[in-house]
Simulated assay, not measured.
Amino acid sequence: MLPWIQLDRATIPGEGGELRLKQRGAEFSIMLGSTELMNSRLSGSEEALATLSCERISGRKDARMLIGGLGMGFTLRAALGALPEDARVTVAELVPAVVDWARGPMAEFHKGTLDDLRVDIHVGDVGALIHSRNATYDAILLDVDNGPDGLTRASNDSLYNHAGLRAAKAALRENGVLAVWSSAPDAAFTRRLRDAGFTAEEIFVRANGKRGGRHVLWMATNR
Rank of each mutant, 00 (worst) to 15 (best):
R60T: 08
E174C: 06
V144W: 03
N39T: 13
P3L: 03
D186Q: 11
L141I: 06
M38R: 04
E15Y: 03
L76F: 10
R77F: 02
A26Q: 13
W101G: 04
C54N: 00
V216Q: 12
T90V: 15
M1S: 14
N208R: 13
S58H: 09
L70V: 09
D86C: 04
S53P: 01
I130L: 05
R173N: 11
R64L: 10
V123T: 15
A187Q: 12
R24S: 14
A184F: 12
G164A: 05
L7Q: 11
V95C: 09
L49N: 02
L42M: 12
R153H: 10
R133K: 14
D116H: 07
G150V: 10
E85L: 07
P105L: 08
P96W: 02
A48C: 06
G212T: 02
L2K: 12
A207V: 11
W101L: 09
R103G: 04
L80S: 08
P148K: 04
G71V: 08
T221F: 02
L80T: 07
N222W: 00
Q23G: 02
D100V: 06
W101F: 10
A207K: 06
R41I: 09
E174Y: 06
L66P: 03
N175A: 13
Q6K: 06
H110C: 13
A200W: 06
S29H: 12
F189K: 01
M72N: 02
R9Y: 05
R103C: 01
V99E: 15
L7K: 05
S45L: 01
H162K: 06
D116Q: 06
T113M: 08
A87P: 02
G71W: 03
V205L: 09
E174V: 11
A168V: 12
A179R: 09
G213M: 11
R9K: 14
L165G: 04
L70C: 03
R211M: 08
L2N: 14
F28G: 00
R194Q: 15
R20V: 13
F74T: 05
M219W: 05
N208F: 07
N146E: 11
A48Y: 06
R56N: 05
V123E: 14
K61Y: 00
E174I: 07
R133D: 10
A170S: 11
V91K: 05
R118N: 02
N222V: 01
M65L: 15
A163G: 06
E47C: 04
S158Q: 13
N161Q: 12
H110V: 15
D143K: 07
N146I: 11
T90C: 11
T75L: 01
D143P: 01
E47M: 12
V180W: 10
A82N: 04
H131I: 01
G213P: 02
L52E: 15
P84K: 07
A87Y: 03
M65W: 12
S34K: 12
G104N: 10
N222L: 00
N146H: 04
D145E: 03
N134I: 00
T11V: 14
G44T: 07
G112Q: 10
R153T: 14
D120A: 13
M38E: 06
T35R: 13
D195S: 08
R223C: 09
D100H: 04
T152E: 05
G164T: 03
A220C: 06
N222R: 14
S34D: 14
G213I: 02
A188R: 13
G150I: 08
A79T: 08
